[in-house]
Amino acid sequence: MENSDQIIQYLLSGLSNGSIYALIGFGFAIIYNATGIINFAQGEFVMLGGMLTIFFLNVFRLPLITAIALAVGVSTAIGIVFERLAIRPLKNASPLSLVIITIGASILIRGAAMLVWGKDTHALPPFSGNDPLYLMGATMLPQNLWIFALTAVIIIASKLFFHYTIFGKAMRACAFNSQAASLVGISVKTMVLLSFMISSAIGSLAGIIIAPLTMTSYDMGIMLGLKGFCAAIIGGMSSGLGTVIGGLLLGILESLGAGLISSGYKDAIAFIILLIILFLRPEGVFGKKETERV
């Protein structure tokens, strides 16, 4: 039974990482749908979430919950600044300039984090202790439960937001047809800003809940961001549930691959999946095809 216990263990850790990828992928999809931009800086907000929480916790000795709230607040503020300074000035920018701008922002944020916090890795204490729980022969940390629960809450909350609030509906209208949306009086600019706010908030939350498990450092955002993107691509960049499934699938494949094949190639797995999907179905597994207008 040794072997199947192992598999369960891999599945568990895969699901937990996968939840994080799903959250990050959500951030990508929200901005992409509002603006058509793929925000290469998405991963940096994940890093900011973890680093800022640790910072508020250690330097200001704030209680965990306050530190988390502040970290999410500051990350969101940085998201706003980013949108106002780097995205809004560009009208009708080509995808090429947008790629470059968001990469620039990602380097800038990462570099600034390194200057402020140095190159060391930092640990955030787990939200509720380190005593392992046992499940079907596999062990699990309470933090894993936190991850599952909070991911579910965030995703359900954003679903509710998009379907039942006036802002959420307006954002969906914008994503569907921004011209028509502005004709009925929706401010597209506000919606773009809002999308950056929401996705930086979700990104930072993802960074916070994973921080106790993975250690946090200034450069953790690159890989996590890219894997989140991979999750979003599997989900077709649009359908909410698709991204969740994409994230979980990626997490599981990665964890199984690392466990059963080779841990050194763990990070390569996400990118191989990414390439295969882009090559075979650029519109994503759950997306649909469109004809480019001429």
Binding site: F229, Y265, F271, L274, P282
Partner: peptide, 28 residues
């Protein structure tokens, strides 16, 4: 051929992915 079928952001991501895979191979 498959990579350059992609455009804009997707092309950026695919080339990036390729770069990272090669980088991992160098290390491993």
């Amino acid at each position: 051929f498959p990579i350059l079928k992609l455009k804009g952001h997707y092309l950026a991501m695919a080339t990036l992915g390729f770069g990272i895979i090669v980088y991992i191979i160098f290390n491993e």
